[in-house]
Design a protein around this nucleic acid. Structure first.
Lengths: 141, 141
DNA sequence: ATAGGTGCAAATGGTTTGCGAAAAC
DNA sequence: GTTTTCGCAAACCATTTGCACCTAT
């Protein structure tokens, strides 16, 4: 592979393979959060021979490089998304499965309060709310 | 089994078995959060024949009955604790593994802010902070 | 008596890994 | 030419399940 694309620079000090370019492209264009299998299924439409192992290996790599965020929204599997410049968290509708992003200055406030009270140094906050989105709340009851 | 103990009442509408009594007793006396395997290992010291399947089945039952809380503090497995009267969340030290409980009125504030802004109805908040506890922060750097 | 629980071993399902072939550098 | 990745199949590990037997009610 010769031609450099937008996100090739993102993969620094590592070989730029067609598979990596493909996976990053799918993640970039996805406006939702994908799990490994979903990513794999979208990938295989463009590259018949890509393997699930490659998807997992590269998701791990992307995560280690800080390119993608890994979020565990349920007990079953992880979801991946291109790292946003702005920190955000998620609402998960347990009725329709919709995932909504949100952010709030209260989170930073909470973290610094806890750090102050407990002498704890926070490197990562795991946070999401489960419940019913506006639509499901009204229709299901 | 005939003799009723403290927590037998907790298991309502379900047979009170020796295994259930044992598991609840271990969970009660544990001052830390146990995963299924740890619980199983403590249980097998008192009942040589208890099986891991029974541990999992009853943890699920206890969870459904609202007797225990299931928390996923890492990607590998879940931890279980007897349900506290007071809502609380956890700090996880990624250096020493220590788990510290905390609570803050900011969490309720955050939830109601999000509900107001997004029209979301929250049934459960998943929250924990990862980082370094006071000791590790100072000793490791 | 009978509904429900238990132990065992096998299955499940997401994720990881060993290995020889292939591609990137 | 050397280093890294890939595809495949097998391994892994937490959790679940089918089944024959046992226990609480």
């Amino acid at each position: 592979m010769r031609i450099k694309r937008n996100h090739d620079v993102a993969i620094k000090d590592r070989p730029v393979t067609a598979q990596r370019r493909l996976l990053l492209d799918i993640l970039r264009k996805a406006n939702s959060h994908l799990d490994a299998k979903e990513l794999y299924q979208r990938a295989i439409e463009r590259d018949r021979h890509i393997s699930l192992a490659t998807v997992y290996r590269n998701l791990r790599l992307f995560k280690e490089m800080g390119l993608v965020d890994e979020i565990r929204l349920d007990d079953v599997h992880c979801y991946y998304e291109i790292k946003h410049p702005a920190e955000h968290y998620h609402l998960v509708c347990t009725a329709c499965g919709q995932v909504i992003e949100f952010e709030s200055p209260l989170i930073a406030k909470l973290v610094s309060e806890v750090e102050h009270n407990c002498g704890f140094h926070t490197s990562k906050a795991v946070l999401h709310l489960e419940g019913y989105c506006n639509r499901c709340k009204n229709s299901i009851g």
